[in-house]
């Protein structure tokens, strides 16, 4: 359960202030699947970082499962990230010179998962994103899309309650993109996972139940999706409905 009220994020750039978020109120329930859309620079990544406890608001309140996040210490936030959140970065952020498998095992190490179980779960996560044959490849030996899928596997490895993804299909062709969305839908359906992802693609966005639109750091629209698409639906649908 995510509750933002009056959240702002202001960056100081020399003398000028950049208002990345200008007062966002947002409520996302447990188990919801939500897409965040909006033009470039509208604050989507900033919002997602705050939701993922990677950053704190300049002002406003963020309560996650009833606990106020902005009051937490650094280590408490780390614990929240470890226990509840899986995050897929827009730039992947994989550890260089480290194999896909070891990258995926990283969150499990800090969650205190033992060696054997850690390996098993990391392999399962890589299997889910269709990379079981690339486990021992390093990021520079993987394509952009494969790196993105490693990043997704890493976010999933810890079986987090909330999955946050910043343009998870950005570097993927429509077929693998659809496969990833299908995976998200499956997790959402089977284990009631909360999924929130940022996308520029209206077609991808319509695979969720709800689309939040940002513009200039404010929520400009928040609508349910009347008929969420099932992954694998034809893209032509998009033209008819939008």
């Amino acid at each position: 359960m995510i509750e933002l009220s009056g959240v702002t994020k202001i960056y100081q750039m020399g003398g000028t202030e950049v208002r990345a978020l200008g007062g966002v109120d947002l409520f996302i329930d447990k188990g919801e699947m939500t897409a965040i859309m909006g033009p470039s620079g509208s604050g989507k990544s900033t919002l997602l970082a705050i939701l993922g406890c990677l950053d704190v608001p300049t002002s406003g309140a963020y309560s996650l499962d009833g606990i106020n996040v902005e009051k937490m210490t650094d280590d408490q936030l780390a614990r929240v990230r470890s226990e509840k959140i899986g995050f897929v970065f827009q730039q992947f952020n994989l550890l260089a010179r480290t194999t896909a498998l070891e990258n995926v095992m990283l969150p499990l190490i800090y969650a205190g998962v033992g060696g054997r179980e850690r390996r098993r779960r990391a392999q399962a996560a890589l299997d889910m994103v269709g990379l079981s044959d690339r486990m021992h490849h390093r990021p520079n030996e993987l394509s952009g899309g494969q790196q993105q899928r490693v990043a997704i596997a890493r976010a999933l490895a810890n079986e987090p309650a909330i999955l946050l993804a910043d343009e998870p299909t950005g570097a993927l062709d429509s077929k693998t993109g659809t496969e990833i969305i299908e995976l998200f839908q499956q997790l959402h359906r089977d284990i009631g996972q909360t999924v929130i992802y940022v996308t520029h693609d209206p077609f991808i966005a319509r695979h969720t139940q709800r689309i939040v639109r940002l513009a200039d750091g404010l929520v400009a629209g928040d609508d349910p999706v009347a008929h969420p698409l099932a992954a694998g639906a034809k893209r032509e649908d998009e033209i008819v409905t939008s």
Partner: peptide, 19 residues
């Protein structure tokens, strides 16, 4: 630079400072 990013990533996936 690389190590700072590494630290950021490790923290992002749940590492506490002392780790």
């Amino acid at each position: 630079t690389e190590r700072t990013k590494e630290v950021g990533l490790r923290k992002a996936v749940g590492a506490p400072r002392r780790a």
